[in-house]
Design a protein around this nucleic acid. Sequence first.
DNA 1: CGATCCTTTGACCTCAATCAATCGCGGTGG
DNA 2: CCACCGCGATTGATTGAGGTCAAAGGATCG
Lengths: 247, 247
Amino acid sequence: MLSSTLALQNFVGRLAALSPLSNEDAAVLLRLPVETTRLRGNSDILAPGETHDWACLVVSGIVARFVQLRDGSRQYTAFHMPGDMADIHRVATAAAGSALQTLSTAIIIRVSAKELKAAALASPAITRAFWAYAAVDAALLSQWVVNLGRRDAKSRMAHFLCEIGIRSEQSGLGDRTDFILDASQAQIGDALGLTPVHVNRTLKSLKESKLVSTDGRIIRVLNWPALAALGDFDPTYLQLDNRREAA
Amino acid sequence: MLSSTLALQNFVGRLAALSPLSNEDAAVLLRLPVETTRLRGNSDILAPGETHDWACLVVSGIVARFVQLRDGSRQYTAFHMPGDMADIHRVATAAAGSALQTLSTAIIIRVSAKELKAAALASPAITRAFWAYAAVDAALLSQWVVNLGRRDAKSRMAHFLCEIGIRSEQSGLGDRTDFILDASQAQIGDALGLTPVHVNRTLKSLKESKLVSTDGRIIRVLNWPALAALGDFDPTYLQLDNRREAA
DNA sequence: CGATCCTTTGACCTCAATCAATCGCGGTGG
DNA sequence: CCACCGCGATTGATTGAGGTCAAAGGATCG
């Protein structure tokens, strides 16, 4: 209950950091009707091909956007941390596009798409914030394209860990050098375009290089500058700095 | 001159197909101050790290968004065909993000970012259209992520050719089975995450399978259903159908 | 008509996939 | 309480797709 409103506040705070919102605008968003749900891991929030009349705001855990191929294999296209609205783009376009899944146990809030749309229609400033939010989403996706297209497994993993570290920090879940990545190695593989086996070997090699250590699903970054250099990670590459200031 | 206004009309038509625009809204956009420029191939419209106070609307040729890595290699994250606005997202966020380059000779229109922003501020409907446009952009990027992450070279190329075919058709440049892809094999490689050599071999293998034939940079798809099946290409995956109806 | 860029092809090598076990742990039922 | 089960992590052996290196043709353009 408490954390639900926190997640919503977090979301609104991020929006406001991207594009100015009046107190009234923020209040409208915070007052949106909301339904909290707890889900176990690996459950589809939105199965491939389906559509819902609500959008999904993450409260805890990680929600992943994915596309399923004909052969059953999956590619995650985005990870959503607490405070992220996973599929608000659906309110803008109604495109079928990607599906939504929890990685491990998660709590989400369902927000009525109709109400979101009404809020956007009623307030140009809210629409502008949603637009900016979509642009940041696209910037994230661009980075994933670059990561998959041009980096080998080790630096791909390094870049991924840096991104998740920063975003965990931004969501108030820990430190960029000490955070929980609550995903199986197979799931990490579906994000990085690697097989589970190779994810394991890649992590092993990062540990051997003294860049990270793991304890269960806790990731500890032992040498952030080196990890960022290996991953060619540019912390300014996304709107993250802006958004962080607002936190 | 003529084609400049056509490209702008094409753009406005796409926006209107995504989100309703009044005649007045459309007229405002069509009246935007505009400066046409002809560029040779491989020239940076927006170098990495730079920012401009205008956005780029493609009139002819292909404009590619890209990210440059420290080692100098490039990954294209999006191809923009005539009628596409390449970097309107900058108006929403000011994020540095990706750079912009022509593939071969191209004509572009520079549209003042300030005027675009003013148009959005003045008309909520225009803002909503820009938001929807950003959502479609993100859907395209998702597909590229999937393509790079989960498909081997041959079906990756197949998917790519299907996308370009459909989008060429949509831009009024030809038929999905008979279009010009005005890019070198090295540039195609930078889009697909492949080396130039392997692009060549992959194309050769598609030709040997009687799926496509080429004549210079003209692509002829000999067997669309088979090519689409190989690329796991779902024509409904993007807002393209909507946009096509509007053309 | 040389210069340059692009395509094409061959030989070789490497990174990551595949196939196949084993290990460890938390849960479950007897 | 303990044997069993199933998922996820780990490791080894092998294979294969795609990268790298190198060179030879074709085009196009000053």
